[in-house]
């Protein structure tokens, strides 16, 4: 008489959209958040949210700093599409190189599958922006990230990120006209998360 199958048919897209909406509203507790490096704690007071995409503009150092927290807590980390990554800088932030996997230059069609594969093992994946992706690919990727509870930090723009981090170098210490050497970098982070903006200033490294 009634087609129950029709009624209890789960709507996978709708459910995942709802979950995403709940997450973006912040109604889910921050439990299970990924730890961040102590220097970034003012910028990310509740840690990195697992299973979401962050968009980072303007600094590779901050991306490495975001890797450092989970890496120091034993997570694997992945870096996709950054063939010129300074491994020494990553080690200086405290990223454990034994648990860092680099995929320097995936072909554009393989970008999504590479990030998805790394999401299987890594706690955080940093990836250079792939350019345009189809809506289906983005949805499949976000679903995978959510189930694996892996955070993705895209260096560049991303459609509907959980937060956008804009890093601006304010100044440099130590270098003058013809003498000196760079000792410290002053960075301002502008973070837009859930339509709220917060800023904080960082000095890298803390002590020269």
């Amino acid at each position: 008489m009634f087609d129950y199958g029709e009624v209890i048919q789960p709507f996978p897209d709708a459910v995942s959209d709802l979950q995403e909406m709940l997450q973006q509203r912040g109604t889910t507790p921050a439990a299970g958040a990924l730890p961040v490096h102590p220097r970034l704690a003012p910028a990310f007071p509740s840690g990195l949210r697992p299973g979401v995409v962050y968009s980072l503009v303007g600094s590779v150092s901050i991306a490495l700093a975001l890797l450092a927290g989970p890496s120091q807590h034993g997570a694997w980390c992945g870096v996709v599409g950054l063939p010129d990554l300074g491994v020494e800088a990553a080690a200086a932030w405290g990223v454990d190189l034994d648990r860092l996997v680099l995929v320097p230059a995936p072909e554009p069609p393989q970008w999504v599958s590479t990030v998805a594969a790394l999401a299987e093992v890594a706690g955080v994946v940093v990836a250079a922006s792939p350019g345009r992706l189809s809506g289906g690919e983005v949805q499949r990727l976000t679903a995978r990230l959510r189930t694996r509870r892996t955070s993705l930090v895209v260096i560049g723009p991303w459609e509907r990120p959980a937060a956008t981090v804009r890093a601006t170098t304010v100044g440099w210490d130590g270098l003058a006209q013809g003498h000196g050497a760079l000792t410290r970098q002053h960075v301002r982070l502008d973070i837009t998360e859930r339509h709220q903006q917060r800023s904080c200033c960082l000095t890298i490294p803390e002590t020269p």
């Binding site: 020494e88 680099l102 995929v103 995936p106 393989q110 599958s113 590479t114 594969a117 790394l118 093992v121």
Partner: peptide
Amino acid sequence: EHVVQTLTGLQHQLGHHGVLVSTV
């Protein structure tokens, strides 16, 4: 084991030099 398997699988997909580890 699952890390090894996943990364080796990714390496099959991308080629031997597609997946790297690093040190200083």
